[in-house]
Design a protein around this nucleic acid. Structure first.
Length: 276
DNA sequence: AGGGATACTCGGCCGC
DNA sequence: TGCGGCCGAGTATCCC
């Protein structure tokens, strides 16, 4: 499940693969992936003839920067991009194909069909869903202890639920939320408004440390993640609680517990992350 | 009004 | 071997 480190890794590899390529035509095999414009045929028409200048990332979204358009793409659970020669076989899980003028094609493959694509006129993407309400980037100066603390004080929701909803900070999903809360020694069910300034400061640092280390290692290859060049990440070896229920805590030896928080499987150490 | 919970999108996979 | 139910990101929708 791609979270910020995996999406950042995909962004970097895509920038090695597709810069300067011009779309000859777009082939949509599963129209429900295309969320904007509502008519997917229009999506194809608008991209024909456009050249990719850069691929950016905002939270877990990829932004493909074309001449006059921006395509915003979310990989959700299992979405992947690959650059293939036109004559390579296309499998049943490939749902969108960007055919380029040079005989290559960028293929979007997504077993669960959960991913989304939105196409905007350049500049209008920031004022509309899905980008409009996103919180600060965790690895930028816009992510501050004071801002995080202020957002926590607004709600009684569990801190894990707040961190997953992309409003206080972007890029965290189920894996990195559990890892960051473990590093900050905060119980995932703690009401956000109950966090002290010190808690918020530790959490802020834990989020930055966890995500930056994961980016450095090319993300986590849980289940099926590989980057757009087919390479695995290595952060899965660094996971301290996620996927380790019943195994001893790396700090204290207490068995890691698994519970449900906001409907998501949640891993934590009941000793290190005890509720104050 | 706006926070909060729920439904919805999917198909691999698990357990019975 | 068959099959119902689970999982999950983020948006839409409903409720209070």
């Amino acid at each position: 499940m791609p979270e910020l480190p995996e999406v950042e890794t995909v962004k970097r590899t895509l920038n090695e693969l597709v810069i300067g390529k011009t779309v000859e035509h777009v082939e949509v095999r599963w129209p429900r992936i295309i969320k904007r414009p509502g008519d997917w045929n229009r999506f194809c028409e608008l991209l024909a003839g456009e050249t990719i200048h850069k691929v950016d990332r905002r939270g877990k979204f990829l932004l493909f920067d074309f001449d006059s358009k921006v395509m915003v793409s979310h990989l959700r659970m299992e979405g992947r991009y690959r650059l293939d020669p036109e004559d390579a076989p296309v499998d049943q899980y490939t749902h969108v194909i960007f055919h380029f003028t040079d005989g290559t094609a960028l293929r979007y493959r997504d077993v669960r069909k959960f991913g989304t694509m939105h196409l905007f006129e350049k500049g209008e993407e920031w004022g509309l869903p899905p980008l409009i309400k996103l919180g600060p980037e965790p690895l930028s100066p816009s992510f501050s202890i004071e801002g995080l603390l202020a957002d926590c004080r607004k709600t009684k929701r569990a801190i894990k639920v707040l961190l997953l909803d992309q409003s206080a900070v972007v890029g965290l999903g189920n894996i990195y939320v559990d890892e960051a809360l473990f590093r900050a020694r905060i119980h995932p069910l703690t009401p956000a408004c109950a966090l002290s300034r010190q808690d918020a400061a530790r959490l802020h640092q834990a989020i930055i440390d966890t995500l930056s280390e994961a980016v450095r290692l090319g993300g986590s290859s849980i289940r099926t993640f590989v980057n757009s060049q087919g390479h695995m990440g290595f952060f899965q070896q660094e996971l301290r609680v996620y996927g380790r229920p019943g195994l001893p805590c790396v700090n204290c030896g207490t068995p890691i517990k698994k519970i449900k928080v906001g409907g998501r499987g949640t891993h934590f150490c009941p000793t290190c992350q005890s509720r104050g």
